[in-house]
């Protein structure tokens, strides 16, 4: 284990493990969200579960740590990579590479920027209050409904979700590649899985603001 985290591959290892952890979190988040489309009772029940289940309470700080580690290592690696090319090219790189793979850090910043707004919209008024001993909103469904039925908010969420789609479309297979869990046959398969995963997440996230802005009365 000696000096593993001082090596470039060791730092990438941290990125992929923390990223994979966040991928699992997104699946849970997306499934809870869909309860809001099902019914008010279902969503409020799901929120109650998230506020009381002991495993979830343990995982909340772990999740926060996962985000912090992923972001801190992204900054460390990006600064390191910028130093590897002190003199820039005059002509931009024309080599074939996906938009997402070239812009992971920028996409990550966009995701992070909206994440802070998102946390202030919901989490700060819901689960956070249980941790700090404040009063959480009594009807989470109503909070979601009033926030997302505002078209400006809904549009912001859609932009955010689809920036996340790009981030995930590269991040998913990239995590496997960094861990060494791929080869010539599995790289194309993992890329397909990447697009499927990113699309499942983005579509299930998109349904919620669309539903509230179009149908919620």
């Amino acid at each position: 284990m000696a000096n593993i985290f001082s090596s470039s591959i060791g730092k990438k290892f941290v990125m992929s493990i923390s990223g994979a952890f966040l991928l699992v979190f997104l699946l849970l988040h997306a499934s809870i969200n869909l309860a809001a489309v099902a019914s008010e009772e279902a969503y409020n029940m799901a929120c109650h579960f998230m506020d009381t289940n002991i495993l979830i309470q343990i995982m909340v700080p772990v999740l926060a740590l996962g985000f912090v580690v992923h972001i801190v290592y992204a900054i460390i690696l990006t600064l390191h990579n910028m130093k590897a090319r002190p003199v820039k090219y005059a002509v931009g790189n024309q080599a074939e590479a996906t938009f997402a793979s070239r812009n992971m850090f920028v996409l990550g910043l966009i995701v992070l920027g909206f994440l802070t707004i998102h946390l202030s919209h919901f989490w700060a008024k819901m689960q956070l209050q249980h941790f700090v001993g404040g009063t959480a909103t009594e009807n989470p469904y109503l909070l979601v409904k009033t926030t997302l039925s505002n078209p400006a908010n809904a549009i912001m969420y859609l932009v955010w979700i689809w920036a996340l789609w790009f981030h995930l479309s590269h991040g998913f297979w990239s995590a496997f590649q960094t861990l060494g869990a791929s080869n010539q046959i599995w790289i194309p398969r993992l890329k397909v899985a990447s697009y499927i995963y990113a699309t499942i997440i983005a579509v299930s996230f998109t349904i919620v603001p669309l539903y509230f802005v179009l149908f919620a009365k």
């Binding site: 470039s8 080599a95 996906t98 990239s174 080869n183």
Partner: peptide, 24 residues
């Protein structure tokens, strides 16, 4: 040298077409 972010630009420009599977 920098760290790999799996863009695969190297594979696209390698004159010998060496696959990034070797990076894995």
């Amino acid at each position: 040298f920098g760290a790999c972010t799996n863009t695969q630009a190297c594979e696209a420009e390698c004159p010998k077409g060496i696959s990034v599977a070797h990076i894995a």
